[in-house]
Write a protein that binds this DNA or RNA. Structure first.
Lengths: 199, 199
DNA sequence: GCATTATTTGACACGATGTCAAGAATATGG
DNA sequence: CCATATTCTTGACATCGTGTCAAATAATGC
C-alpha cells in the first residue's frame, strides 16, 4: 500500500471553499488540484468524480453547520432561539467572499440539474437528510416552547414552514442582495409563528 | 439583409423546454440546435451565448406565468386567491417531465453560480424583476383583502413572506419529491397569514 | 444589376471531465 | 532482508461543450 500524499480533510476543505466561492459549475477539478497541490488524477482516484467530491465536501460542512444550529436553537426563550436561528442562517449567506448565498441550496440546485444520473439521487438524499435534521432541531425547540407556553401550534408543520422560509431566503438572497430585507422577512416569520405579529 | 431561416419564438420555446427538462447546465447548445433544426453558430449569432439564450427563453416563459398568476390571484375570497396562487405554484413544479422543480429558481441558481461575469448581473436583475412582480400581485390581493376585512397586517412584508415561502417550496421540492407535504406547508402558510391557524 | 448587410456554415481554439496504463512508493509475508 | 502485492501518482488521451472567426450565401435598397 502506497500512502496518500495529501490530507483527505484538507482537500475537502479546500474544495468546499472553491465550490462556495465559484459554485460547483464554476469550479474545475484543475482549480482544486492546483490549490491543494495535488494531481487531478489523484482526486479522481480518491473521490471518484466532481459531484462525489462536492458531496463529501458538503457533508463535512453540513456537520459543522448542524452543530452551530443546535447551539443557536438551544438557548434562551423560544423567540430568542428562533431569532438566533434565522440570524445564523442569514449571516451564513453573507459571510465569506462573494458571490454569497447558501452553499447547500446552490449546490443542490446545480447538481440536481442533470437528468437522473445516479449521483443526482445521492445529492437529493444528502440534502433531504440535512433539511430533515434542521427541521428536527427547529421542531424540538418549538416543542420545548410548547411546554413553556411560548408556542401553541403544531410543531411538526410549523418547523417545516420555518425551514421552508430559510430556503426561500437563500433564493431571494441571490436575487436582491438586500440583507435588511431578509431580516425583515425573518422577523415577520417569527412573529407569525409566535402569534405576536401585528395582524 | 438576409432573412433568418428559423422562427425566433420557436427556438425560445424549444430552448426553454430543454432547459426545463435537463437544466441549464445539462443542456448544450448542440442539443437545442439539433432540436430546432438550426446550426449552432446561428444560435450564437442570434442570441449571443447560452446564458443570454436562457434569459430570453426564461423571460418568455415568465410573461405567460405572470398572466396565469394574475388570474389566480384575482378571483374570489382572499383565502381562495392565495390557495389558487400556491396551487398554481406547486402544480407548476410538477407538471411536465422530470426532473421537475421551478425552472426559474433552478435556472437562476445555476446561472448565478459563476463568478461575477456580466451576464450574471442580468440574470439577477431578471429574476429580481420577476420576484418583484409576483410580490406586487400578492400584495395587491392582500391589500384588497385588507379593505374587505379578510386581512389586517402589513401587505408589503406579508407578500414578501409568502413569495419567500414559494421559493422555499421550489427548493424543498427537489429534496423531497413529496407533493402532499408541499401542500401542507402552503396551507399552513395561508392559515398563518390569515390568522385562522390553529395556534 | 450591384453593393450592402445580415445570416449561415464549418473549422478552429480552448478548457473541462473522465479514463487508462505505466511508474513509484510503501506495507506485508516469507 | 528481500520480493511481491497493493495502492497511489502521473501524464497522455478521448470526448464533449463553449465561444470565435472568416468565408460563403442570400435578400434588400439604390
Amino acid at each position: 500500500m502506497r500512502p496518500r500524499e495529501f490530507d483527505h480533510d484538507d482537500v475537502l476543505r479546500i474544495a468546499f471553499d472553491q465550490f462556495w466561492r465559484k459554485g460547483v459549475r464554476g469550479t474545475s477539478l484543475s482549480d482544486i488540484a492546483r490549490d491543494a497541490g495535488v494531481q487531478r488524477g489523484s482526486l479522481y482516484n480518491a473521490f471518484g468524480s466532481k459531484e462525489a467530491l462536492f458531496l463529501q465536501a458538503y457533508e463535512r460542512y453540513a456537520g459543522d453547520y448542524l452543530v452551530a444550529l443546535q447551539k443557536a436553537l438551544g438557548a434562551g426563550s423560544l423567540r430568542k432561539r428562533l431569532t438566533a436561528f434565522f440570524d445564523l442562517t442569514i449571516t451564513n449567506f453573507r459571510s465569506g467572499s462573494p458571490p454569497r448565498g447558501c452553499p447547500t441550496t446552490r449546490g443542490l440546485m446545480e447538481l440536481g440539474a442533470a437528468e437522473g444520473e445516479g449521483l443526482d439521487e445521492d445529492a437529493r438524499k444528502a440534502f433531504a437528510n440535512l433539511v430533515s435534521r434542521i427541521t428536527a432541531l427547529v421542531q424540538d425547540a418549538l416543542s420545548a416552547g410548547t411546554e413553556r407556553g411560548e408556542f401553541s401550534g403544531n410543531p411538526a408543520v410549523a418547523a417545516l414552514h420555518i425551514v421552508t422560509v430559510t430556503r426561500g431566503l437563500a433564493v431571494l438572497e441571490r436575487a436582491f442582495d438586500d440583507e435588511p430585507q431578509l431580516r425583515r422577512i425573518a422577523a415577520h416569520t417569527i412573529d407569525l409563528v409566535l402569534g405576536k405579529g401585528a395582524r
